[in-house]
């Protein structure tokens, strides 16, 4: 983990904002307060694990709209919703749209901390995932076009002889390509390679 996780707090009620910030600070979290959706959306977020504790009922842009805007931007930010009154349709809506949790005020510290921890865990998981994916894509990019072709046939479960026939070359050649691409992709078994290809979204050929 490279950066300190940040909890963003967004609530139009300044006193509530302050109380939440105090609670999170006291629990050792780094909290950053915003009292309007506009202010938060304009803020440049640094890279690193973060989550948002979001009040649903706000003037101008409400909590659900903030969630919608973030999704539009492709920002992966886990959200913990807070609401004054448990409104089931609204919570269903929020959870469907990927909310981490939906808590009703007054929220007790244990619930809030659990939700925030969960959200941050997800955020850091997402970050790890993102990094791994970036590395994988780099490896994939290092393959030659021939190796790329062979990869497609290998993950389709074909034998070297079949691949050689399909690509119109010798079985020995295929064997060399295969060993090289396995090495480049950093895998030792065919099963590993298939899993990687799946994560990268490479379709089997033929």
């Amino acid at each position: 983990m490279t950066a300190e996780p940040v909890v963003y707090l967004l609530d139009d009620e300044p006193d509530m904002l302050k109380a939440l910030a105090r609670l999170l600070h006291a629990q050792g979290f780094q909290a950053q307060c915003f009292s309007s959706a506009r202010e938060f959306l304009a803020h440049e977020r640094p890279d690193g694990p973060a989550c948002l504790v979001l009040d649903v009922a706000m003037p101008e842009i409400d909590g659900l709209q903030v969630q919608e805007r973030l999704r539009e931007r492709g920002a992966e930010l886990p959200i913990v919703f807070l609401t004054g009154h448990g409104d089931i349709p609204m919570s269903v809506c929020a959870l469907k749209a990927g909310a981490e949790d939906f808590l009703t005020k007054p929220v007790n510290a244990a619930d809030l901390l659990r939700a925030v921890k969960g959200a941050l865990q997800r955020a850091s998981d997402q970050q790890v995932e993102r990094k791994e994916m970036a590395a994988l894509r780099e490896r994939l990019a290092s393959l030659t076009p021939r190796e790329r072709d062979v990869l497609g046939h290998v993950i389709a479960g074909k034998l070297n002889k079949q691949i050689a026939a399909d690509l119109g070359t010798g079985e020995q050649n295929i064997k060399v390509h295969r060993g090289r691409l396995m090495r480049k992709m950093g895998v030792r078994s065919l099963a590993e390679l298939v899993r990687l290809a799946e994560r990268l979204g490479i379709p089997p050929s033929g």
Partner: peptide, 13 residues
């Protein structure tokens, strides 16, 4: 609810 929520959160903080 609003003041109660604030009191609880502050007290727990």
């Amino acid at each position: 609810n609003q003041p109660l929520a604030m009191i609880l959160t502050n007290a727990e903080a």
